[in-house]
């Protein structure tokens, strides 16, 4: 079976920001957690996977389909769950289904209904009357119901209560373990998603600081602190990188001063 996601040597430069040398390979039926602060480049990477932004160099493929040439095929098998609700407020979950049925060739009404029940989304409540957690769950149900093989979730955990997070994690587990789906989680903090991840990646200022099996990472850092979790490791790597940057600045300033003398 082809890899669920291959991101190979991807680079993209804007006026004020650059994403450099991103290499991520996610086997089918696996889960990768991509962590990083706001502005690290996570959402831009997601947009490149969905062919909204074209990388300057490198390749991206989903289950063997090229992100540019096979855009339509990729979008049919890739579900995208975002934090915002994009459906008109007057709609309810059933109206959303009627719209989505006409947009996806493999829309599954049974799957959608099942996901709504599992996530606890009211089918007849209008979206404008839904609180944020319910809207996020609706987005997730839609993203998992159109023959989805790769599910990408981008920063959906913000401002969610514990029980909402629990139901989301339960739904994601069903998607991965029961349905054999692959999962790409992009989040500032992985938190409750940590248990799902097979791979862990960390982005900082456009650079991929780390990508490896979670077990390798835990082994490496558990020698320092056995109770450490992924978010703490990410904080540590972040701190280390900041200190390293400060050290480089100090050295540069010292060299400048010496040069002036």
């Amino acid at each position: 079976m082809a890899e669920a996601l291959i991101i190979k040597d991807v680079c993209k430069k804007w006026d004020d920001f650059e994403i450099k040398d991103i290499d991520i390979e996610l086997p089918a039926k696996c889960v990768v957690g991509l962590a990083g602060d706001i502005g690290a480049g996570k959402s831009s990477l997601v947009k490149m996977i969905m062919d909204v932004i074209h990388p300057d160099s490198g390749e991206i493929s989903v289950f063997g389909y090229d992100s540019v040439k096979d855009r339509r095929k990729i979008r049919n098998i890739t579900g995208l769950a975002l934090e915002e609700a994009f459906f008109p407020g007057y709609m309810n979950a059933m109206d959303v289904e009627t719209t989505m049925k006409g947009l996806y060739s493999e829309w599954s009404p049974n799957r959608y209904s099942y996901m709504l029940d599992m996530l606890g989304v009211e089918k007849l409540r209008k979206i404008k009357k839904m609180e944020k957690p319910e809207r996020v769950k609706l987005n997730l149900a839609v993203a998992m119901s159109h023959g989805t093989k790769l599910l990408i979730i981008d920063d959906i955990l913000t401002d969610l209560d514990g029980s909402s997070i629990k139901s989301i994690v339960k739904a994601l587990k069903a998607f991965v373990y029961d349905d054999g789906g692959s999962l790409f989680i992009s989040s500032r903090v992985l938190g409750d998603f940590e248990g799902l991840c097979d791979y862990f990646a960390f982005m900082r200022e456009g650079n991929l600081e780390f990508f490896d099996l979670k077990d390798n990472l835990m082994e490496q850092y558990a020698s320092i602190d056995k109770s450490v979790d992924l978010d703490e490791i990410m904080l540590y790597i972040n701190k280390k990188a900041r200190h390293s940057a400060k050290g480089n600045m100090k050295n540069r300033n010292l060299k400048k001063k010496k040069g002036k003398k």
């Binding site: 909204v52 339509r72 994009f86 060739s105």
Partner: peptide, 13 residues
Amino acid sequence: CKWDSYAKIALPQ
């Protein structure tokens, strides 16, 4: 309701 953004980033059309 930012439907345009969603359509652009997620829909196969």
